[in-house]
Write a protein that binds this DNA or RNA. Sequence first.
DNA 1: TTAATATACGAACGGTCGTACGTATTGTCG
DNA 2: CGACAATACGTACGACCGTTCGTATATTAA
Lengths: 199, 199
Amino acid sequence: MTQVLDGRRVRGDATRRAILRRAVDEASLSGLDGLTIGGLASALGISKSNVATLFGSKLDLQLATIEAAREIFIDAVIVPGLAAPHGLPRLWAIVDAWLTYSESRTFAGGCFFRAVAADASAKDDAARELLVQIDVEWAEFLTRAVREAGLPDPEGLAFEITALLDAANLMSQLHRSPRGYAQARASIRARLDAVDNSR
Amino acid sequence: MTQVLDGRRVRGDATRRAILRRAVDEASLSGLDGLTIGGLASALGISKSNVATLFGSKLDLQLATIEAAREIFIDAVIVPGLAAPHGLPRLWAIVDAWLTYSESRTFAGGCFFRAVAADASAKDDAARELLVQIDVEWAEFLTRAVREAGLPDPEGLAFEITALLDAANLMSQLHRSPRGYAQARASIRARLDAVDNSR
DNA sequence: TTAATATACGAACGGTCGTACGTATTGTCG
DNA sequence: CGACAATACGTACGACCGTTCGTATATTAA
């Protein structure tokens, strides 16, 4: 019978976690193609073949990295959002959590999914499919929050909010200026107020 | 005295142009790091050392690629925008030209500058500086158009418009769906109408 | 105890990268 | 004509890439 605690797997999982923690930061800076097995190994002081063994292939490493980023994103944005009371407060809590998630550099290169989207979207592999699915889930989550806030055109409003969040993230990344965060906050706030008042 | 037409330079410039035409498409798909001297050479049926000689170094090739993309962008968006009459029509012409520029795949991977922004912004070289400058120029250009349309808060409105344009471009790239273009058009149109009516 | 499993390592594979060097060819200019 | 310049090519270099193989070690299972 398989033990609940397998000393070998415990050791391996610890190494895997250490690798992935580094991998998400690296990928948020250089994209999924910028991830290198040898680079991760030397950065962590372990052997290159160890990294290769633990993940099997480069593609599997990329997939595991995306999954790890998803969990971190959920903890940083989704959970705080769901902790807020229904309606407009929850919607604003999600927006605020997202901006804090980007600005506080939860990942070294800002939003992980925007950083890797450019490279990955030009390919046709499992990594791209996973990223598409995650983006769909995010859009549905935000759309539901907008709908539960009683606002009209939830899909359209969710599109606009995501656009502003991404723009703030991009400005902080390219121009290394926090100005976009204040601008996005103001724009979204004004947009929600305008729609809410005309209800 | 240097001839106006130097047969050697004419030949070299023709090769350079052929390389850059391919390079902007390649970079719009895979980023500036995805550009490879050998890849461009074999794609064009010329020798790798020829490409290296014509541009000197990889960084210089990247810079030349960015400059080439800038010229193409100016022809596709700025020129049509400036051809429209002042005020709101010009602003809308710019928005429309930008969406057409992205949707018609002027570059194979959609907007060149959004495609390369992620990778480049994590570095600290001349390529990043050039991309920052181009983005500043775009923001100033769009802000001026908003101001000349008599709308309030030109910087803020330009930020919002750019955010929606980028979101449409990203959606078409990641989800391979044209839905974002119609959504961006509707959102920007509604935003401009709302601001214009409350003048 | 013995066999099987999961990490870990070192070494090596073929491949591609950016770069540099020597050389040939073609065009320009004194 | 000769001297020089700009392309173009072939070759080679060291570095890194992802992957594979053999091996050692610790843990679990039979």
